[in-house]
Each structure stands twice: as structure tokens, then as C-alpha cells.
Write a protein that binds this DNA or RNA. Sequence first.
RNA 1: GCGCCCGUAGCUCAGCGGAUAGAGCAAUUGACUACGGAUCAAUAGGCCGGGGGUUCAAAUCCCUCCGGGCGCACCA
Length: 549
Amino acid sequence: MTPAELSAAILRIVTEALARRESAVTVSIDDVLLDRPKNRDHGDWASNIAMKLAKPLGTNPREFAAELAEGITGIEGVASVDVAGPGFINITVDAAAAGRLAKTIVEQGEAFGRSNLYEGVSINLEFVSANPTGPLHIGHTRWAALGDSLGRVLRAAGAQVANEFYINDAGNQMDNFGASILAAAKGEPTPEKGYPGQYITDLAAAVLQREPGLLDLDDVSALATAREVGYQLQLGEIKDSLARFNVKFDVWFSERDLHAGTPSSIDKAVERLRAQGHVYDEDDAIWVRTTDFGDDKDRVIKRGNGVYTYFAADAAYYLSKSDRGFAHKIYLLGADHHGYVHRIKAIAGAAGDDPARDVEVLIGQLVSINGARLSKRAGNIIELDDLQAWLGTDALRYSLGRYPADSPLTLDPEVLQRRTNDNPVFYVQYAHARTNAVAKNAAATGVDRSAFAPELLTHETESNLLGSLGEFPRVVHQAAELREPHRVARYAEELAGAYHRWYDNCRVTPMGDEVVSDVHRTRLWLNDATGQVLRNSLGLLGVSAPERM
RNA sequence: GCGCCCGUAGCUCAGCGGAUAGAGCAAUUGACUACGGAUCAAUAGGCCGGGGGUUCAAAUCCCUCCGGGCGCACCA
């Protein structure tokens, strides 16, 4: 039996109890979610429903708990029920009922943990969106890991998700980028506002190789050539870096496309906002009344000199997402983009969408290494590529993926490069490799899955392991709902621990001249189920599940 | 000044109202002539930043103060 099935059964009993009292109080499945008590004396699962309902029902929580407990005792597979403390209902499940989960998981395979929470929901998930003026750094790397994992988790919850990268390839920074490359090609120092760093020198060399006549061109053409060729090379490197990092984008959206054509997407966007009545003219500029939607001041969308602001492109870009059929948009942005939140919400509102429902902006905090934050402009960046070469994709993705986005994070490079338990990715991967080794040894000694007798899974570590396995669907569900993929990593660590402890206590293969029995066969199911859930977990994190290490 | 985020063990961090606040690392001590010891078992370590409040129940929710980070452009 799964926790979900037990919850459903309890819901029926609670509903009956309410009907007997002719109460107007209603309950849903979310009210009867079960906890796994930390203390094993409190049973396998615990419910606080009696305490929650005691007040609205005007009853004593312990008495109500006792009433419910009587009904719960009758649920098939429940071994015993106790009322404890202020009104907790502690439930112990019999070994056979709990153990059947192992077979369920093996049979469901990759599907175990998936749900239809977001069935039919189409989500645009934008993240990284780095300027194509330099390599990806540690900050981008964190969003790449978290964003990609979030996409996987949302898909597991049934959503249709497009990972999207917005390329900021219009604007002054591109000219500064081109000028920097051109200066490097000429052997001149970095221009003011230019980009320093070795990568510019390298790009200049690559540009010269592709355009040997670069320095013979007139200034305007040379700048344009340096900029465009450098841009393509740099963007290609970004794409390669992300692909190596196991991060796949479905859409690479160029800001230039918004500016192209007459009228351009931006022209049309401004007109659409104007038609909705949210645009006005003042001081030669065109403004959007974003204060109507919670912004602290109105924003200029077109300057007095006739040039659109960046905000205009943001608006057109937002509308493009809507036009492409994404009802729901998620933006994953760095902390330095905090000022965007109100503006994006305002655009949504001005476009006639519901800012609270259709747009989510997730602001992530900074990562630092060695206490020093890193800046592209300062030229002391740490690149994704360096980190990856140093730590490996799995360790890097996992290290960045196991923390919530909104907590500032300090990574210790000394610890990260150790291939030990300091980095929990190895702990989890080792558990998976171990399930594989156990299965192989089992086959060699004649243990197969020809029998399944779940009532034999009676050891305390087996009960714990089954309890942990049963939580996976809810963990995925929560991770999707809260946009917190790190929960999957934390769960995987707990599951790996439960597995290692089980491995230490319960053998799958017989030792010595012991004969193969149904205990061994049944444990093989449990072993394989654990391997499956570890694989599913690591898959959601974009981390490999090696068969051996 | 205004807004958002953070403050939990020596360190890095989990813990979206539940029982005795957890993990890893660091420290101390044990377990391989039995499925890989990248493992397991155990000890020690906490006014959950301070103070109020709500609740049967607060690290968690509300208020306030203190400390740290980040934002508040006709920049991109």
C-alpha cells in the first residue's frame, strides 16, 4: 500500500465521521496527508487530522482521534492504531501491505513518482539568459542547474514545459563587446566600458582566423564584423557549455527578432498596451502606467530621443510568450534583477493577463566561492567550463541543485573537489551503484524475482526503506508545486541512507551454504525498487546514475 | 529612505503550524577471513539573531528591533 492509498482510506473515514455529526466542515485529501514520525515508537505514519478538526467541530481532539482510530483500524493492511500526545493518530502498517510497494515500484519503473498535477498546463520556463558577451559564470551555472531541474520536475508533474534562453543580443553591450574584441585584435588595451579578460583575447584570435581581413576594413565595418563574428562564436560556446552541463534549451530567443521588421514586435507591443489603455505620452517620452499594477513608479517604454528602452523589449518578449501559447510563464532571475519583478508583473497586467496567476518570477540569491563574488566586468570570473572540468558535471550539478534558490550560498572549493562524502552526490550515486552490484550478485547466486512475499520484509531497516520509497511521489509533487527541485536531492540523500542501512542489515544473496529462499527473492524486489527510485531522483536532477563507480 | 531575500551545531546548509529541531563535514570512538568500507554503528556539539503577539501546538505565521545580501534609470 502506498501512503496515498492510506490517505485516501483515512479521508473516507473522516468524511463518514463528519456525516455522522451532520457537520458542515469539509475535508480534502490535502488535509489527511500523513507524516512519517521521526520516532519509530510513533508508528509508520501519523495523522494530525483530529487536532485540526477539533476546533471547528467543537470537540475534544483526543476523543475525536479515538473515534477515527477505530475506523482506521479496520482499513485493510493496517496493523495497529494508537492515539498519542495531544491527538496524533499513529498508524502501523503490516509488513505485507507495506512491502507490496516494492513490487509496485518495479512495475511502474520510470513512471513511479510522476503525476498529473499539471496535466494540460503549458509552461514557459526562462532561465540563464546570459548576455552573449562572455562565458557563463558561476551564477549562471547555479540557475542552469536549478532551472533545468525545475523543468524536469514540472514535466514529471505532468506539465508541458519549454526551457527558454533569452539572448540579449541587442543594445550597447554588444557594441562594447565588439569594440573589446577589435581592440584585442589590434593589440590595443581594453576600451572604456569594454570587457576585460583572457577570453576576449582568445575570441579576437578566433575572429581573426575566420576573418583574416578584419584589420583592413574601415572602422565601422571592422567593429560590426568583430561584434557579429564574436557574438556567434561566443553564443556557440555558451550553447556547448550548457549542453555539456546536461542542460537543454528548447528555445533560443533572440532579442534582435523583437526589433526586426516594420512594424517590429516592439512597435506592435506598444500599440497593444496602448489599446488596453495603459500607455500615455509625457515629456516627449512614452510611458506605461505600471503603477496600476503594483510598480512603485511608471516606466518609460520609449525615450524622448525616439529609442525604445529595454523595458519595451521586455514587454514585447512577454507578449511573444503569450502569443506562442504559454499561459504560464516562469522567470528565474538573479538577485540583481530584483527591480524586474514589478515591471514584468505590470506588463502581464497591462496585457490583460492575471499577474498573480500567469507570471512567476523566482529570484535567486548569489553564489560565492572563497568568499569572493565574481563579476564579468571585473574580469575575475569563474567559468562554468572551469568548474565543470574541475568537479565534473554530476558533482557540480548536484552541489548547486541541492540548495533552495533563495538562500545565499557559499561553496568551499576545497570541499567540492574532494571525491568523498563531503559531496553527497557520491553518497547517492554509490547507493545506486550498490543496488546494481547487489542485483548482479543475486543473479550469480541464483536469486531471482520469481517470488514476492512482502510479509517477509519485517526488519526495521526494511520498514524504514519502504517508508522512504513511499514518499517519493509526494516529494516530486511538492518540488513541482513549490518550484523547489532541491527537495528531490535532499530526499535522494535520505533514501540512499535508508538503503545503506538496510544493506548493512539484510542480505539479498544467501551466505555460505544457506539456500536461496523467498526472503532473498523478495529482498531483491526491494533492492531493485530502490535502484529505480534513486535513478528517478537523479534523473530529475540531471545527474547520472552510474551502475558502477 | 522604500522594497525583496537571508540569520538554525565549530563550518556548509535542510526543516511551506506538530511529538525529544536534523544532515553532511570537522572532533572523539568502534565495525571487514560474509552482496564494493565511496559503507555502517556510537559519542559530543543548539537562548533556531533579540523582543512581543496569534495558536491546543511556532524555527515555521504576524508585528518590531538588530545584523548581512540585493535591488530601487529616458543603463543594458
